[in-house]
């Protein structure tokens, strides 16, 4: 019990520190830096939600971009002012039942999470009996299908043109508030019986089933929670950026989140949080590579695309040098890939 109390104290201290940092940041930092702080918070939520499936339940899912897209479009369509909708849908009018809807941010976020979770259950129920790589490919396929459908349903999503002028409700309190709620929820879930069941499934599916754990129920549940948070994070992102289009939600986005999860350590909450912040900040910090630098005596020309080259080299190096993730001490429990 002392151990649990210590963790609680640390969590409380982290919470207080974050609040102080956010207060100071909102006061002294410019818009660009605030935006990075927001993005970090959103990526914390995304990383944790993916870690819930991939890390804690041991299901290899790559469908996050799809659920984010669902959440982002839900929030965009629900919060956008009615005149703005008319301006966006000049090509083909919006479906009548959405044309005159405008709700607040919180109900829109909740709707985003719930619709996304519902879709998660709908998709998860048939595909979750697949194993490992097959599950990964099937979920990746669903995410792609969602993107293609969103590109083609002109009267619902405005198709490839995307949506512009989404009201900017997301601020640091929203993004980090949701992040902290996710941290709390995931740790709460993991400590309880559900978490034990999830981890039992990860360790050995057959043994878990023999112990009386309902595999199907727990897998779908884990998937539903994860898609709920992915949807909410997508909604926060839409409201932060103000503009969305289906091409934002490509596989690359899922890979970014997977990267955070693996660097932070599978099944590790604190590691995921730290990795999310580091990866987000680093993506921005490397931006100078794409732009010209003036060192006074010498002018270095930026090369477009260089940022991602350096980023991927760092990624490969980190994986090669720290094979078990940046913040893990545990030995990898998963089977090595050459084992059959």
């Amino acid at each position: 019990m002392r151990d649990k109390r210590r963790t609680d104290l640390i969590a409380l201290a982290a919470l207080v520190c974050t609040v102080v940092v956010l207060l100071l940041a909102n006061r002294y930092l410019d818009d660009y830096k605030i935006r990075i702080i927001n993005l970090s918070g959103i990526y914390v939520t995304l990383g944790l939600s993916m870690n819930l499936i991939n890390g804690f339940t041991g299901l290899f899912s790559l469908g996050h971009a799809g659920f984010m897209a669902v959440g982002a479009y839900t929030v965009a369509l629900l919060t956008m002012p009615i005149p703005m909708k008319e301006m966006n849908f000049f090509f083909q009018p919006i479906v009548p039942w959405l044309a005159n809807v405008e709700v607040g941010f919180l109900p829109a976020l909740l709707a985003a999470g719930l619709i996304s979770a519902f879709l998660g259950v709908l998709i998860g129920a048939p595909v979750l009996r697949l194993r490992d790589d097959y599950l990964a490919i099937a979920t990746l396929g669903f995410a792609e299908i969602i993107r293609v459908v969103f590109t083609n349903t002109q009267s619902l999503t405005n198709g490839a043109l995307g949506l512009k002028g989404i009201p900017n409700y997301t601020n640091t309190w929203w993004s980090w508030g949701v992040a902290f709620f996710t941290i709390w929820f995931v740790s709460f879930l993991i400590r309880g019986s559900y978490g034990k069941a999830f981890m039992a499934i990860r360790e050995d599916e057959v043994a878990a089933e023999a112990m009386g754990i309902n595999l199907f129920k727990h897998k779908v549940l884990s998937f539903a929670f994860a898609s709920f948070f992915a949807g909410i994070a997508g909604g926060l992102l839409a409201s932060l950026l103000g503009t969305i289009d289906p091409n934002m939600f490509r596989i690359t986005l899922t890979f970014n989140i997977l990267l955070i999860v693996v660097l932070g350590g599978l099944g590790r909450i604190a590691g995921t949080v730290v990795a999310a912040v580091i990866v987000t900040v680093m993506m921005e910090a490397l931006r100078f590579l794409d732009e010209s630098i003036n060192l006074g005596f010498i002018q270095l020309k930026g090369i477009p695309g260089m940022r991602m080259v350096v980023f991927s080299i760092i990624l490969i190096l980190v994986v090669l040098l720290r094979k078990e993730g940046l913040f893990t001490r545990l030995k990898g429990r998963e089977s090595s890939y050459a084992e059959n």
Binding site: L258, P304, V319, E324, S335
Partner: peptide
């Protein structure tokens, strides 16, 4: 990474894919 967890080598493959794409752009 042959003896590492499968997901690690998959990340490496994704990194290699990013690298080739962006090297292509550069």
């Amino acid at each position: 990474l042959r003896d590492s967890p499968r997901i690690t080598i998959l990340i490496s493959a994704i990194g290699a894919s990013f690298l080739l794409q962006n090297l292509g752009i550069v």
